[in-house]
Write a protein that binds this DNA or RNA. Sequence first.
RNA 1: GCCCCCAUCGUCUAGAGGCCUAGGACAGCAGCCUUUCAAGCUGUCAACAUGGAUUCGAAUUCCAUUGGGGGCGCCA
Length: 487
Amino acid sequence: MTQVRTRFAPSPTGFLHIGSIHTALFAWLYARQQKGVFILRIEDTDNVRKVEGAVEAIMDDLRWLGLDCDEGPGLGGQHGPYIQSERLPLYKVAAQKLVDCGAAYKCYCSQERLEQLREFQTNNKLPPGYDRRCRNLTDAERAEKEKEGITPVIRFKTPLDGQTTIHDLIWGDVTFKHNTLEDLVLMKSDGFPTYHLANVVDDHDMQITHVIRAEEWMSSGPCHILLYNALGYEVPQFAHLPMMLGKDRAKLGKRHGSTSIGQFREEGYLPETMINFLALMGWSLDDKTEIFSLQDLIKYFTIERVSKTSAVFNHEKLEWLNGVYIRKLTPEEFAKKAMPFLERWLPESVKKPINPVYTGRVLALVQDRARTLKETAALTEYFFVDVYEYNSTDLISKGMDVEKTRQALTIAGERLAKQTPFDAASLEPMLRALAEELGLKAGQLFGSLRTAITGRTATPPLFQMMDVLGKERTLYRIQDAVKRLES
RNA sequence: GCCCCCAUCGUCUAGAGGCCUAGGACAGCAGCCUUUCAAGCUGUCAACAUGGAUUCGAAUUCCAUUGGGGGCGCCA
C-alpha cells in the first residue's frame, strides 16, 4: 500500500482562521494515524491579497497547536518548493500542455466585458458564468486578438455533455452534469495560476493521496477531476469536511467575533483546548467521550466518523473545555502559562516584573476558577494592588449593620494582629471561635473580612487569601475598611 | 436564478429497522457540599422539521414539501 500523504494548503492572506485550523487538524490527524506524511504548502497565487509575514505566522500557529509538518517551506522535502509563487514554471508547462492538446483555450475577454456579462445575467435572473465566447475562436480571430496586444487568460474547455462523479470519503458519490460547470480560468493574465490549476498540479506533483479540505470546495470537485484526467494524472481520494458556522448559521467570518486562532491564543485558550474542541466539530468517537488529547485523537480518529452536517461554533462550550484543561495543569505549569498574561493585563500601577514566588501562590488560588489565562488578571488583581474601589455597603453582611460590622472588623483586626503563625490552618479556628464569641454566624464575619481584604464578594477561600497576602497587608486592609465604615 | 448538499434538545453530538419511554456534553433551572465564588455531585427542562410510502415494526429506508448551508470571480 502506498503511503498516505495529506496537505494543508492555506493562503497567506492574513491570520490563520479557526476554520482553516479545523481543516488542518483533520488532515493532520489522518496523516498521523495512517503513519503518513503531512505537508504544508503555501498557496500564494493571489498577489493582491498576499500579506507580509503571514507564512511565519501560519507556521507559528501550527507549532503552537502541535501540528507538526513533515514537508513544507523551510522544512525540506522531496517535492519542493512548497510555496506556489516559487513553482510558476510548473503551472505554465501544465497549462501549455492543456492548450496544446485542445483541453484548454486562450480567452481574450476583458474583465469589463465579464463584469457586464455578469451584471446582465444577474439582472435577468440567469445563472452567472462565462459565455464561452473565446472557446471556438478561429486561428485568424486569435491572431487578430494577439495583434491587439491583449494578454489572454487560459480557460479549461469543460466538456459540454456528460457528467462527472466525485467519490468522496465523507459524502459518498456525488454527480455533477457537465453542462452546469464552467470554463474555469486556469492561468490569469498576470502569469499566475488560479487555485484550481495550481492545486491540481501541486497535489499531483507532491503525490498527495488524500485531498482533505472544507466542504466549500465540493462544487469545484468535478472540475478538478476533469483537470486531473486532462493532465493524465491519477485522481486522489477526496474528503470534504463539514464547515464551521457562526451563531447565525452563516459561514464563520469576521462578523462572528474572534475567528483567528491567534486571537484565541491571546485570550488565554490552551492549544489542547482548541484541538479538542475543533476535533469535536464534525467528528465524534461515541456517545460519551469528549476529552481527547492529540494522542487520543491520532488513535481514534477515523474519516468514517466525520459527519456531513456543518456545526455551529459554541463559544460557551469552548470556555468550559478550557477550564477543564486549565484544571488539568499542574500548579507549576499553570503558573508558567498564566504569568505572561498577568504581566500584560494587570493594571499599569503594578510593578513589573511581578514576583514569581508570590505570584505562584496567588495563582494557585484561582486555577480552579479561571476559564482562560487572560482572566487570571481580573481574578487576582487585588493581590497586586493595594488601593481599590468598592462599595462599603458590601462590607455589611446579611443581618448586620454598620456599627456591628465596624466592631466585628475592629476586633478581628486586633486578634489577627496577635496571631502567630499567620497561616490558613491557624487562622480558620481562631476566626471561627471569634465569630461565635461575637454571636455571629461564621459567614457573617467571613463575608465582611472578605470584602475588607479584597473589595469583592466572590473570591477564593478567605484564610488562604490572608495567608498569601500576609499579616501586614491583611491588617492594613481591615483597618482601611473600618475607616470606610466610620466615614 | 441555476447546481450540489444537509436536516435528532438552544448548541455540539450518540443513534446504521425492534436494545429509543431517543443517550451524553455545554448552556439554563433546582438541590447537595460550602465562609463567598468556583470545582464536584444529584436532579430537572429540552429534540427525531412536515406529509406520504415501504414494513409486523422507522429517528433510522424511499419520495415530496419546508427549512438551512455551500458553490456559481483573472479569490482561495
